[in-house]
Write a protein that binds this DNA or RNA. Structure first.
Lengths: 208, 208
DNA sequence: TGATTTACTAAACACTGTTTAGTAAATTTG
DNA sequence: CAAATTTACTAAACAGTGTTTAGTAAATCA
């Protein structure tokens, strides 16, 4: 009898409805204002119900963080086609920066906020750990490895190169998202231009 | 009569006592656990008293953030002596990374958390804005300008170079502080070694 | 000495994440 | 089909949070 299947499906549907409502609220009003009580009110259930589907707020926001990664990885696919690994590397960087500027809330959750990482810590070993993070990093790593193989960049260690490349682009966008470029009085379009100038200059530095 | 002077001095002393207690709590137990109520209890005053000395929690944490910057700038002074601007640049980077790893809570407050920047936004124009941030950045900017003048680095625009250099080191340490290097299973000493490898590799890239 | 200002606080307001105990409906079992 | 059990849900409470208001006692001024 398909009764347990139906129940499982219903459970999944309810979970999805919670994540959907929470995501909408999070993107519109930010993390702080997306309270368990507000989400519950939006889906017309009691706050306690949410705890039947998620261990805590961190686990719920881990689910939202995953949606963000799916979005980023879909964008990244566009770069995967590019044969020349150096051009692909530049495109990956460009997509990364563009994603962060277009989806600052998602980016914040994916790479800055503590919340989703807390969720990972608690279920140690259950699934490997930070799957989507690994996937994204290995995309960068394999591209840089190709660049080194073809002697297109001035570096030997692919892991070190991947780390400081990731750090460079993360630094660029996270300082913007967390308001530290207020030092230089720039408008948003001016800053965006600057960020891409930084990216291009960085690519020049790496190039043989 | 020195009565208003004494009162002013007492007001300052009380302010300092609040900041001191809050700083100790913040460094020991982190931002979340450093509540207005806990601070008040520690200094043996009521929570409402704190609001006679600080507009809100953000303003209090802006004061703590300033202490962090004083600490960083004191470390930076050691680099100022170095004549060779390229070596000075490397030292500035090293001190920056070292500071972040040794004082992750301060670093977080200074360059990642929203709280102190919120305090700045509210008093628009009162003092310029993010004074300490500007000071630190101009230290980097002047060093890089010297490097360019002496043709020691492969770049023309000093502002762009300062931005991506800052971003690179900020990226390195902020990904560590916010737990995103959990991807690579490294111990803390291993990661530290890697971060400095990244810094050195980056310096090689910049060098002519 | 009386008026005023200053420094402070108790209590409340409006929130937050989370847990517990209990209920009503759906499902399974005899 | 009726009784027992499981499932899905909620009201209410717990223990906190930042912040404001109204009121008090002491210090200072006139």
């Amino acid at each position: 009898m398909g009764i347990v299947e139906r129940k499982e499906r219903e459970k999944m549907e309810m979970r999805d409805r919670i994540v959907e409502a929470a995501t909408l609220m999070f993107l519109e009003d930010g993390y702080e204002k997306t309270s368990i009580r507000n989400i519950a009110e939006k889906i017309e259930y009691s706050p306690a119900t949410i705890y039947l589907y998620f261990k805590d707020k961190d686990e719920l926001f881990f689910a939202i963080h995953n949606i963000g990664f799916q979005l980023l990885l879909k964008e990244m696919e566009k770069a995967a086609k590019i044969k020349n690994p150096l051009k692909r590397l530049r495109e990956i960087g460009g997509i990364y920066v563009e994603f962060a500027l277009k989806n600052p809330e998602y980016y914040d959750l994916m790479f800055i906020m503590r919340s989703p990482m807390n969720a990972l810590k608690e279920k140690h070993g259950d699934e490997k750990c930070w799957q989507y993070g690994e996937t994204t990093f290995s995309l960068l790593l394999s591209t840089i490895t190709e660049c080194i193989e073809q002697k297109l960049i001035r570096t030997k260690d692919p892991v070190v190169a991947s780390m400081y490349t990731w750090s460079a682009v993360h630094g660029l966008v996270s300082l913007k998202i967390r308001d530290r470029y207020s030092v230089m009085n720039l408008t948003d379009p001016q800053l965006k231009k600057m960020l891409f100038q930084c990216l291009d200059e960085f690519m020049v530095l790496m190039h043989t």
